[in-house]
Amino acid sequence: NKFNKEMRNAYWEILLLPNLNEQQKRAFIRSLYDDPSQSANLLAEAKKLNDAQA
């Protein structure tokens, strides 16, 4: 399933972002589970926040 693969990839990438705190990571991951079809958008948002907090 395409969404499962995308979601899994986004999950691990979000977990490994160094500048997000645990609460932020949990919020993004919760959103991933709520709507896996938004994986790419959520990952992009997480990366943007990660860069902003660098």
Results as ranks from 00 to 15, higher is better:
Ser31Asp: 06
Asn4Ile: 07
Tyr33Ser: 02
Glu6Phe: 03
Pro18Val: 05
Gln53Met: 10
Glu45Leu: 13
Arg8Glu: 14
Phe28Tyr: 10
Lys5Phe: 01
Leu20Val: 10
Asp51Met: 15
Asn19Gly: 10
Glu6Met: 04
Ala44Leu: 10
Asn1Met: 02
Arg26Met: 09
Ala27Trp: 13
Ile29Lys: 03
Glu22Gln: 12
Gln38His: 09
Ala40Tyr: 14
Leu49Glu: 06
Asp51Thr: 12
Ile14Gly: 01
Asn41Lys: 14
Glu13Val: 15
Arg8Leu: 12
Asn41Gln: 09
Lys25Gly: 01
Pro18Thr: 05
Asp35Ile: 13
Leu17His: 12
Arg8Tyr: 11
Glu45Met: 15
Glu13Pro: 01
Gln53Asn: 08
Pro36Glu: 02
Leu49Ser: 06
Asn4Ser: 04
Pro36Ser: 06
Phe28Lys: 02
Ile14Gln: 00
Ala52Met: 09
Pro36Asn: 05
Arg26Trp: 13
Ala40Val: 12
Leu32Asn: 01
Asp51Ala: 10
Glu45Ala: 13
Lys25Trp: 03
Leu43Thr: 07
Ser37Trp: 11
Gln38Tyr: 08
Ala54Asn: 11
Gln23Tyr: 14
Leu49Lys: 10
Ala27Leu: 13
Leu16Gly: 14
Met7Thr: 07
Gln23Glu: 09
Ala40His: 13
Ser31Tyr: 06
Asn41Gly: 09
Ala44Thr: 12
Leu42Ala: 06
Ala44Trp: 14
Asn19His: 13
Asn50Phe: 01
Ala44Asp: 10
Arg8Phe: 12
Lys25Thr: 07
Leu16Gln: 13
Pro36Gly: 06
Gln23Asp: 07
Leu15Arg: 14
Asn50Gly: 06
Ala52Ile: 12
Leu17Ser: 09
Ala54Asp: 12
Glu13Tyr: 15
Asn1Trp: 00
Leu20Met: 06
Arg8Gln: 14
Ala10Thr: 10
Ala10Asn: 02
Glu13Gly: 15
Ala44Val: 08
Leu17Tyr: 06
Leu15Trp: 06
Lys47Ser: 05
Ser37Arg: 11
Ala54Pro: 08
Phe28Gln: 01
Met7Asp: 02
Ala54Ile: 10
Trp12Ser: 07
Asn4Arg: 03
Glu6Val: 02
Lys47Asp: 02
Ala46Arg: 00
Glu45Thr: 13
Ser39Trp: 14
Glu6Thr: 04
Leu32Gly: 01
Asn50Met: 02
Lys47Ile: 05
Glu22Ala: 12
Met7Glu: 07
Arg30Lys: 04
Ala44Asn: 12
Asn21His: 10
Gln23Trp: 15
Lys48Gly: 08
Leu49Gln: 05
Asn9Ile: 15
Pro18Ser: 08
Ala46Ile: 02
Asp51Asn: 13
Asp34Asn: 10
Glu6His: 03
Gln23Phe: 12
Arg26Ser: 03
Pro36Gln: 05
Asn4Glu: 14
Glu45Gln: 13
Leu15Pro: 01
Ala54Met: 11
Glu6Gln: 05
Arg26Ala: 04
Asp34Ser: 14
Arg26Tyr: 13
Asn1Gln: 04
Leu20Ser: 00
Ala40Leu: 13
Gln38Ile: 09
Asp34Phe: 13
Asp35Glu: 07
Leu16Trp: 10
Ala40Ser: 11
Ser31Trp: 11
Ala52Gln: 07
Ser37His: 06
Ala46Pro: 00
Glu22Trp: 10
Leu20Tyr: 00
Asn19Trp: 14
Leu43Arg: 14
Tyr11Asp: 00
Ala44Tyr: 14
Asn50Ser: 06
Asn41Pro: 04
Arg30Gly: 03
Tyr11Ser: 04
Ala40Asp: 05
Arg26Lys: 04
Asp34Ile: 15
Met7Ile: 07
Phe28His: 02
Leu20Phe: 02
Ala27Thr: 15
Leu43Phe: 04
Arg30His: 04
Lys25His: 03
Leu15Met: 07
Arg26Leu: 05
Ala52Thr: 09
Lys48Asn: 12
Ala10Gly: 02
Leu42Asn: 04
Asn9Pro: 01
Lys2Glu: 15
Lys48His: 10
Arg26Gly: 03
Lys47Arg: 11
Leu32His: 00
Ile29Arg: 04
Ala52Lys: 11
Trp12Arg: 14
Leu49Tyr: 12
Ala46Trp: 01
Ser37Ala: 10
Asn21Trp: 15
Ala54Ser: 09
Gln23Ile: 08
Gln53Val: 12
Tyr11Met: 13
Gln38Glu: 10
Ala27His: 07
Trp12Asn: 14
Leu32Ser: 01
Glu13Asp: 05
Leu32Ile: 05
Ala44Lys: 11
Arg26Phe: 10
Ala54Val: 12
Lys5Met: 01
Ile14His: 00
Lys2Ser: 14
Ala52Glu: 08
Glu45Asn: 13
Ser37Met: 12
Asp35Phe: 11
Ser39Phe: 15
Gln24Pro: 00
Lys2Trp: 12
Asp35Thr: 12
Glu22Pro: 13
Asn41Tyr: 14
Leu15Phe: 13
Lys48Trp: 15
Ile14Leu: 07
Arg26Asp: 02
Asn50Val: 02
Phe3His: 13
Asp34Tyr: 12
Asn41Ala: 07
Tyr11Leu: 09
Leu42Val: 10
Ser39Tyr: 15
Asp35Asn: 12
Ala52Tyr: 13
Asp35Ala: 10
Asp35Lys: 11
Leu43Val: 05
Asp51Tyr: 13
Phe3Glu: 13
Ala52Phe: 12
Asn21Met: 14
Leu17Ala: 07
Tyr33Leu: 06
Glu6Asn: 04
Pro36Met: 04
Ala10Glu: 01
Lys5Gln: 07
Phe28Ile: 03
Met7Pro: 01
Lys2Thr: 14
Asp34Gln: 13
Asn19Met: 08
Met7His: 03
Leu42Tyr: 10
Arg8Val: 04
Asn1Thr: 04
Asp51Val: 13
Lys5Pro: 05
Lys2Met: 09
Leu49Thr: 12
Lys48Phe: 12
Asp51Phe: 14
Ser39Asp: 01
Leu49Asp: 05
Gln38Ser: 11
Leu17Lys: 04
Asn9Thr: 10
Lys5Arg: 03
Gln53Leu: 13
Phe28Met: 05
Asn1Glu: 07
Leu32Pro: 00
Ser39Ala: 06
Pro36Ile: 03
Ala27Lys: 09
Asn1Arg: 02
Glu13Trp: 15
Leu20Pro: 00
Gln24Asn: 07
Asn21Ser: 07
Asn41Glu: 05
Leu15Asn: 07
Leu17Gln: 08
Ile14Arg: 00
Glu13His: 15
Lys47His: 08
Gln23Val: 10
Trp12Pro: 00
Asn21Asp: 09
Glu45Ile: 14
Asn41Ser: 10
Leu42Arg: 11
Pro36Thr: 06
Arg30Val: 04
Phe3Ala: 06
Ala54Trp: 11
Leu49Pro: 00
Pro18Asn: 09
Ser37Ile: 06
Asn50Ile: 02
Glu45Arg: 15
Leu16Phe: 12
Gln38Thr: 07
Ser31Asn: 09
Lys48Leu: 13
Ala10Asp: 01
Ile29Gly: 03
Trp12Val: 04
Leu16Val: 06
Ile14Asp: 00
Leu16Tyr: 13
Gln53Asp: 09
Met7Trp: 15
Glu22Gly: 09
Lys47Glu: 03
Ser37Gly: 04
Leu16Ile: 05
Ile29Met: 04
Asn19Gln: 07
Tyr11Asn: 01
Ile14Pro: 00
Asn4Leu: 11
Lys5Ile: 02
Ala46Thr: 02
Leu43Asn: 04
Ile29Asn: 01
Ala46His: 00
Arg8Lys: 07
Leu42Lys: 08
Tyr11Ala: 08
Gln53Ile: 13
Ile29Ser: 03
Ser31Ile: 06
Asn1Ser: 03
Gln24Ile: 07
Asp51Gln: 15
Asp51Ser: 11
Ala46Gln: 00
Met7Lys: 01
Leu15Asp: 01
Leu16Thr: 11
Ala52His: 11
Trp12Asp: 05
Gln24Ala: 09
Ser39Arg: 13
Leu32Trp: 03
Asn9Ala: 15
Ser39Asn: 04
Ser37Asp: 06
Gln24Glu: 06
Leu15His: 09
Asn1Phe: 01
Leu43Tyr: 04
Met7Leu: 12
Leu20Trp: 00
Asp51His: 15
Arg26Glu: 01
Ala40Pro: 09
Lys48Thr: 10
Met7Phe: 15
Leu16Pro: 02
Glu6Asp: 05
Ser37Thr: 11
Gln38Met: 05
Ile29His: 05
Gln53Glu: 10
Leu43His: 03
Glu22Leu: 08
Gln53Tyr: 11
Leu17Gly: 01
Asp34Val: 12
Asn4Asp: 14
Glu13Asn: 15
Asp35Met: 14
Glu45His: 13
Asn4Tyr: 13
Trp12Met: 05
Glu45Tyr: 15
Phe28Pro: 00
Glu13Met: 15
Pro36Ala: 07
Ile29Gln: 03
Lys47Thr: 03
Glu6Lys: 03
Asn4Thr: 06
Ala44Gly: 09
Gln24Gly: 02
Ala44His: 10
Gln38Val: 05
Phe28Trp: 07
Glu45Pro: 00
Phe3Pro: 14
Ile29Asp: 00
Asp35Leu: 10
Arg26His: 04
Ile29Trp: 10
Leu32Arg: 00
Lys5Glu: 09
Gln53Phe: 11
Phe3Met: 10
Asn41Leu: 13
Asn19Ile: 05
Leu43Gln: 08
Gln24Tyr: 06
Ala10Ile: 09
Leu32Gln: 01
Ala27Pro: 03
Ala27Ser: 12
Asp34Arg: 14
Leu43Lys: 10
Ala10His: 03
Phe3Arg: 04
Tyr11Pro: 01
Met7Gln: 12
Leu49Asn: 06
Met7Ala: 14
Ala54Lys: 03
Ala52Ser: 11
Trp12Phe: 12
Pro36His: 05
Ser37Gln: 11
Ser37Glu: 07
Glu22Lys: 09
Phe3Ser: 08
Glu22Asp: 11
Asn9Trp: 13
Leu32Ala: 01
Ser39Val: 13
Gln53Lys: 02
Lys48Ser: 09
Leu15Lys: 14
Arg30Phe: 10
Leu20Arg: 00
Asp34Trp: 10
Ser37Tyr: 10
Asn19Tyr: 12
Arg8Gly: 02
Glu22Val: 10
Arg30Trp: 13
Gln53Pro: 07
Leu15Tyr: 05
Phe28Gly: 00
Ala40Glu: 06
Phe3Lys: 11
Lys5Asn: 03
Glu22Ser: 10
Leu15Thr: 09
Ala40Met: 12
Gln23Leu: 08
Gln53Thr: 10
Ala27Gly: 07
Lys2Asp: 15
Arg30Leu: 07
Leu17Val: 01
Ala27Tyr: 14
Leu43Pro: 01
Asn41Phe: 15
Lys2Gln: 15
Asn21Gln: 10
Lys5Val: 02
Gln38Arg: 11
Tyr33Ile: 06
Lys25Leu: 05
Ser39His: 15
Leu43Ser: 12
Trp12Leu: 03
Ile29Thr: 12
Asn19Asp: 07
Lys25Asp: 00
Tyr11Trp: 06
Ala46Tyr: 03
Asn1Ile: 05
Lys2Arg: 09
Arg26Gln: 05
Arg30Ile: 05
Leu15Gly: 03
Pro18Trp: 05
Arg30Ser: 05
Leu17Glu: 01
Leu49Arg: 07
Ala44Arg: 10
Glu6Arg: 02
Asp51Lys: 09
Asp34Pro: 03
Pro18Glu: 07
Trp12Gly: 05
Asp34Met: 14
Phe28Thr: 02
Glu13Ile: 15
Glu22Arg: 09
Ala10Phe: 04
Asp34Leu: 13
Leu16Asn: 14
Tyr11Lys: 12
Gln23Met: 11
Glu22Met: 10
Asn9Leu: 13
Asp34Gly: 12
